[in-house]
Amino acid sequence: MPALPGGFELPASLRLTRVGSVDAVALEARAADLAGRSIKKESKLLALDLAIRCMDLTTLEGADTPGKVTALCTKAIRPDAQDASVPSCAAVCVYPNLVPTAVARLRGSGVKVASVATAFPSGQSPTAIKVREVEEVVAMGADEVDMVIDRGAFLSGRYGKVYDEIVAVKEVCGAAHLKVILETAELGGYDAIRRASLLAMAAGADFIKTSTGKAAASATLPIQLCMLEAIRDVHDATGRRVGMKAAGGIRTAKQAVQYLVQVHETLGLAWLTPDLYRLGASSLLNDVLMQLHTQRTGRYQSLDYFTND
């Protein structure tokens, strides 16, 4: 029954944070300011170690095979053949067909298996099929599901469809954690990224994630900052901590440190754990390892000494 006979319900007070808006220039200026932090010595070692522990080592190619995925899983468990003190990565992220291979290799290692799903990367399939796909990957043992939102629905204003689909996927995830990929490059600006972030969190996302890595552009520092601010507002309003995953385009240790500094200074130390922060990357790890060695040995390094998997 509507509160006012003949009327309709107005959200007099928003249950969540206000959607609000984002000023692009100021957001980018803040991101650039934080990117200018000079992280040296022990503080850099901490960051590099953290970057590895928060890394979702990723392969998402049509040519992926069990052999390729097995090798990647091995690297994720022990990233540095020369140094056992280097921690394992957080997860290995693969296509659904490769989940059994990854599960088999990673069992007992503490490294999670993440699977993309829901008609990745476009999301342009019927909801029922997406839900079914998620059921499959969870049944195969995936610990984490990286779903994509339906950008077609979002951009045409059918926010309800986007929301309902995330809810449906979340329901079948069970114990698996749900990362919701916004594919920020396709949304058309920071206001939309903020709106999509809030929508995904409202629908139950455990993480929100920038990109598939398959679009024209991927994560950027201002985009992550925009999403972190949404996460912070949700935490303020509900007490819930939603995780952040930046993915795509992060190839150097320097970039990784910049992303971590931004998380540190926006959300605080509490988010600096693989439980709440991930870096999705395919070629970042070796650069981080090289930097670790440089820091420890005082010598510049060569890629010849780091394995390509």
């Binding site: 932090r37 992280i39 040296k40 022990e42 850099k44 999670k112 610990d143 130390l269 600096l272 693989p274």
Partner: peptide, 17 residues
């Protein structure tokens, strides 16, 4: 996640003069 990985207790930036 089932197991909680603790965040670092602090992240002090080293002096960068």
């Amino acid at each position: 996640m089932t197991d909680i990985v603790p965040a670092p207790a602090a992240w002090e930036y080293a002096p960068a003069p």
